[in-house]
Amino acid sequence: MTTHEPEITEPVDLCLPDGRLNPAAVGWTRRPLHRANLRGWGRSKRWEYWGVVTPRHIIGVVASSLDYAGLQSVYVLDRTTGAEHNREGLTPFARGALLPPSGGAGTVSASGGGVTVDIDQRADGSWIRATAPGVEVELTVPLPAGHESLGVVVPWSDRLFQYTLKDLGRPVSGRLRLGAATYEISAADSFAVLDHGRGRWPYSARWNWAAGCAPGGRAVQLGGVWTDGTGMTENAVFVDGRLHKIGEELRWSYDRADWLRPWRITGERLDARFTPFHERVSRMNLGVLAGETHQCFGHFSGWAEIGDGERVELDGLVGWAEEARNRW
C-alpha cells in the first residue's frame, strides 16, 4: 500500500499539553525535529540503541526506560569465531535512567546490574562509553555536514503513538576491549546506526526492522508490521547521506523455523534480499514484561528505487534484519 506522508521541516512537540498525540507531529523528517514531551506512566517507552559494524565485530549498546524497568546492555559478536558476549542489567522502575526528549542532543545515562552506559550527544556528534564485566566500549560518532536521518511519528491513536529516529551509516572510531584483548575501531571500514525511540505503546507489540550500510556510502532502512495501517512507514534509502523516502508498506518473507534462511523484503519500489550469517536470540520473561527478539546479521542484495525510475543497488550492504515480539 502506498502512503501519503507529510514531511515536517520545523521543530514540533510530540504531545499536546494533556499528553495526547499532537496531530501536527505526525509525519517524517530528515533531521531530529521532534521533542518527546511525554507525560504519564505505564505505557511510555524511551530508548537509545547504537549498533556498530566493524570488519571483526558487531556491537550493540542499549539504554532504555520501559517504565516498569530499565534495561541497559552491551552486546558483542566476533564475526570471525561466532562468539557472543552479552551483558544485561535490569533496574526496577528504570531508577536513575536519563533519556533526553530530543534525538542527538543532551546526555544519556543508565546503569545497573553491572552495566553502565553513558552517551554525550552534541551538534557535531555523539560520544559513547559502555562498560560491563569483561567488556568496555569507547566510541566517537561524528555527524558529517549535510548527513540526513529518518524521523517518523507512527500514530495508533491519540493516546498510543511512537516517535522513531533511525540514523544510519554514521562514521565511527574508538576501541573495544574484550577481556585482555583490545581492538581498534576505524572510521575507514566501520559504521554506526542509531535507533532513538520515544512513545506510548500498546501492551502487546510486534515489529520487523532491517538496516544495512556500507562505510561512507549507501544505506537502507526498512520496517514493518508495527506501522501497518497507520498511514506512516519507516522505509528509506540513503545515498551519500541524502534520504530518499519510500512511502509504501512492504512485504516481509522469512522462515520462523529457520531464521538463517534468506529473507525477502519487497514492494513496488524495493526488492531486497537479506542473507544472514548469524542469529542472535534475546528472551525476557519478568511476568508483566516479556519479549523475544530474533536479530539476524548478514548481507543485503537487490535494489531500491529513489525516484524517476533510478535504482540503487543494495549489494554489499551489511547489517541486520529482525523480528521482535513484546508484552510491555
Rank of each mutant, 00 (worst) to 15 (best):
G199E: 06
S149P: 00
T230L: 00
G174M: 11
G197C: 15
V135L: 15
T131F: 05
L222D: 04
D120I: 13
W226K: 04
L168Y: 00
A132H: 10
V225I: 15
W201S: 12
G216I: 08
S157E: 06
A219W: 00
R170Q: 05
W156T: 04
P155Q: 10
V108A: 01
L160K: 15
T131M: 05
D158M: 12
Q162T: 13
V154N: 05
F191T: 10
A180H: 07
S186K: 06
S111L: 06
R198Q: 08
V225Q: 15
V115S: 14
K166T: 03
L194H: 06
F161T: 08
G151L: 10
G125C: 11
A192M: 03
T230H: 03
S126Q: 14
I185T: 04
G151P: 09
S204C: 11
C213K: 00
P171L: 09
F161P: 01
D189Q: 05
V117T: 12
A210F: 00
W201E: 07
S204D: 15
E148K: 01
S149D: 06
V115K: 04
C213P: 01
Q221G: 07
R175D: 13
N208I: 03
V137G: 07
V220K: 01
Q162P: 02
R200K: 14
S157L: 09
E136D: 15
Y183L: 10
A105Y: 11
V172M: 11
V117I: 14
V152C: 08
D118Y: 12
W207N: 07
V152M: 09
W209F: 15
T164C: 02
P202I: 02
L178P: 08
P133L: 09
G229F: 05
G112F: 01
K166G: 00
W156S: 07
G114N: 08
G197M: 05
A132K: 10
G125L: 09
N235Y: 02
D167S: 07
Y183T: 15
A188H: 12
I128A: 05
D228A: 14
L165D: 10
S126Y: 03
L178R: 07
D195F: 06
G212W: 01
L165N: 11
D120K: 02
R177P: 01
Y163I: 04
V137S: 13
G229K: 07
C213F: 00
G223Q: 12
A130R: 02
Q162N: 13
V135K: 10
G134Q: 12
L143Y: 12
V117N: 04
L222F: 08
G125H: 03
T230S: 08
D189N: 13
G217W: 02
R170K: 14
A181Y: 10
Q221L: 10
A214I: 03
A205L: 15
N235Q: 04
A145V: 14
H147N: 02
L178I: 14
A123Y: 09
G179S: 14
A180K: 09
G113Q: 04
S149G: 14
G104W: 01
W207Q: 10
T131H: 11
P215T: 11
R129H: 14
A205R: 12
D120T: 09
G229C: 04
G169R: 03
S157F: 06
G212F: 03
V117A: 05
V152D: 05
G106L: 02
G231T: 01
A192R: 02
L139I: 11
